Lab assay of single mutants.
Amino acid sequence: PAHPYDRLKTTSTDPVSDIDVTRREAYLSSEEFKEKFGMTKEAFYKLPKWKQNKFKMAVQLF
């Protein structure tokens, strides 16, 4: 299930529990994912792991 970005980011005051914290981005809706990352999930997962992590750090999901 998708969760709002505000509850997934590492600085959230009301974090979602029971998620894989190493894959926070996977819980974003497709729309919100595209808004935050500027690309689709499919394109994101084709990137090298280090680049994925760099993007995730930039949007507080790492």
Score class of each variant (00 low, 15 high):
residue 22 T to I: 10
residue 62 F to Y: 15
residue 55 F to Y: 14
residue 21 V to G: 07
residue 36 K to G: 01
residue 44 F to N: 00
residue 58 A to E: 13
residue 16 V to T: 05
residue 17 S to T: 15
residue 49 K to E: 08
residue 1 P to S: 10
residue 27 Y to W: 04
residue 57 M to V: 11
residue 39 M to Y: 02
residue 54 K to P: 01
residue 48 P to L: 00
residue 1 P to N: 11
residue 25 E to H: 02
residue 20 D to N: 10
residue 14 D to P: 05
residue 52 Q to F: 00
residue 51 K to C: 15
residue 44 F to Y: 02
residue 17 S to E: 13
residue 18 D to G: 14
residue 47 L to G: 00
residue 26 A to D: 08
residue 29 S to I: 01
residue 30 S to G: 11
residue 57 M to S: 07
residue 42 E to P: 06
residue 46 K to L: 13
residue 38 G to P: 01
residue 2 A to N: 15
residue 60 Q to V: 04
residue 32 E to S: 06
residue 48 P to Y: 01
residue 9 K to W: 07
residue 42 E to Q: 12
residue 13 T to E: 13
residue 24 R to M: 10
residue 20 D to G: 10
residue 62 F to V: 14
residue 42 E to S: 11
residue 17 S to G: 12
residue 37 F to V: 02
residue 13 T to S: 11
residue 44 F to Q: 00
residue 40 T to Y: 03
residue 34 K to E: 14
residue 27 Y to N: 02
residue 5 Y to I: 07
residue 36 K to A: 09
residue 18 D to H: 08
residue 60 Q to D: 15
residue 22 T to S: 11
residue 29 S to N: 10
residue 62 F to W: 14
residue 2 A to F: 15
residue 1 P to H: 13
residue 38 G to Y: 06
residue 59 V to C: 12
residue 37 F to E: 00
residue 36 K to S: 02
residue 2 A to H: 15
residue 25 E to Y: 06
residue 61 L to N: 07
residue 31 E to R: 09
residue 25 E to F: 10
residue 23 R to D: 04
residue 4 P to H: 06
residue 31 E to P: 06
residue 56 K to W: 11
residue 23 R to Y: 06
residue 44 F to K: 00
residue 47 L to C: 02
residue 51 K to G: 00
residue 11 T to V: 04
residue 21 V to S: 08
residue 51 K to N: 08
residue 6 D to A: 00
residue 42 E to A: 12
residue 34 K to V: 13
residue 25 E to K: 03
residue 53 N to D: 14
residue 15 P to R: 04
residue 16 V to A: 09
residue 48 P to M: 00
residue 40 T to A: 09
residue 52 Q to W: 01
residue 28 L to M: 07
residue 47 L to V: 01
residue 34 K to P: 04
residue 18 D to C: 14
residue 22 T to E: 07
residue 24 R to A: 05
residue 18 D to S: 09
residue 5 Y to G: 04
residue 61 L to W: 13
residue 22 T to P: 03
residue 54 K to G: 08
residue 16 V to R: 04
residue 54 K to E: 14
residue 34 K to C: 15
residue 46 K to W: 08
residue 6 D to N: 01
residue 22 T to M: 07
residue 14 D to F: 07
residue 5 Y to R: 02
residue 31 E to D: 12
residue 10 T to G: 04
residue 24 R to P: 08
residue 61 L to T: 01
residue 3 H to I: 15
residue 37 F to T: 01
residue 33 F to Q: 01
residue 23 R to P: 04
residue 4 P to K: 05
residue 48 P to T: 03
residue 41 K to Y: 09
residue 32 E to D: 12
residue 22 T to H: 10
residue 59 V to K: 07
residue 27 Y to E: 06
residue 50 W to V: 04
residue 41 K to C: 08
residue 39 M to K: 00
residue 27 Y to H: 10
residue 11 T to I: 04
residue 31 E to C: 10
residue 57 M to D: 07
residue 18 D to M: 07
residue 55 F to H: 11
residue 7 R to W: 08
residue 14 D to M: 11
residue 15 P to D: 05
residue 41 K to N: 01
residue 38 G to K: 11
residue 61 L to I: 04
residue 31 E to Y: 10
residue 23 R to L: 07
residue 45 Y to L: 02
residue 2 A to V: 15
residue 2 A to Q: 15
residue 55 F to M: 15
residue 40 T to R: 02
residue 46 K to P: 00
residue 39 M to H: 00
residue 19 I to S: 02
residue 59 V to S: 05
residue 46 K to Y: 06
residue 56 K to A: 03
residue 7 R to V: 08
residue 8 L to H: 10
residue 48 P to C: 03
residue 45 Y to K: 02
residue 16 V to D: 02
residue 14 D to H: 10
residue 20 D to Q: 02
residue 15 P to Y: 03
residue 17 S to I: 13
residue 21 V to P: 12
residue 57 M to L: 12
residue 29 S to K: 03
residue 26 A to F: 12
residue 24 R to Y: 08
residue 19 I to Y: 04
residue 24 R to Q: 04
residue 10 T to V: 13
residue 25 E to L: 10
residue 44 F to A: 01
residue 58 A to F: 09
residue 7 R to T: 07
residue 6 D to V: 00
residue 5 Y to D: 05
residue 16 V to E: 04
residue 38 G to I: 02
residue 43 A to Q: 14
residue 42 E to Y: 12
residue 8 L to D: 05
residue 49 K to V: 13
residue 56 K to Q: 01
residue 41 K to W: 08
residue 24 R to V: 06
residue 37 F to C: 07
residue 34 K to N: 14
residue 43 A to S: 13
residue 51 K to A: 14
residue 61 L to F: 06
residue 5 Y to F: 08
residue 4 P to G: 08
residue 15 P to Q: 05
residue 61 L to V: 05
residue 48 P to H: 01
residue 35 E to F: 10
